[in-house]
Amino acid sequence: MQKTHLLCMALAMFAIACSKSDTDTPVVNPPEDTTKVDVKTGVYTLTDLAADTAATSGAAAKAFYYSLEDQRTIPASQVQTANWDIAFTGTYNSTILVNNGKAKYSPGYGGPGVGGIYLVKDAAIDAEYYMGPQKAFKTIPARRLFDSAFAHVKTVPVSDDQLLTNDGIGLDYFGPSTDGWAFYDFYGLQFPDANPDSVAHICYSMPRTLIIKTAKGHYAKMVIYSIYKGAPELPTRSGKPGFVTFKYAIQKDGSKQLDLK
């Protein structure tokens, strides 16, 4: 009887909660990571950084804030500080936003961040795998292509006013989006002969380098190898998304020199 009442209450509360907007999602702050890393100018590879590990391909993966300067995750409560540099948002946490206090649509709007982002397209690298917007790849890009694309970028190729601040960079030509760093294969086009259950809705990383200006104004470059746990070269539907593996180089002297080892 007691249990019935509890159940009843729970159901009733659920019913009442229904009157609120369904789009409100609770803000859950991940526990603060207090490990200090002295990140010097150099190249770093981070594996299986846990973004929203509860994410399916639903649109509303929780935003995940990360500091390239300090190599740690930053809680959402510090979104208006210069403590974070990149946010992984949206579907599978695939849209990368930066921290810019002057940009109305940056999560850091109103804060001190001076960040920016720019996608470098490398025609020679693209020629190896890319067949055009919304088309299957010629072949799944090999890891060496990611490393080549990364190495080819030796400086920031554009002036600061060409860095994006309001816009994120995410899925390549998925619906109305434009150039991106990942191919979201909605229909399973990459493997047309396979059972769609196993090949549709896979997010393939692309060997394209992102230029990041950090919240504090340092320049960095990064390539994202994978958003699946274990960073498999060939992701499958059974892969677990929400785990970001990427390589980045950061220049701490304020210059745009990114030919770093």
Partner: peptide, 21 residues
């Protein structure tokens, strides 16, 4: 255009919410 609200950019106001799940 008007499509999926908030996609691809935060400021892309749309006419529906969509979940890929």
């Amino acid at each position: 255009f008007a499509g999926w609200d908030g996609y691809p950019q935060v400021y892309n106001t749309g006419w529906y919410f969509y979940s890929l799940t």
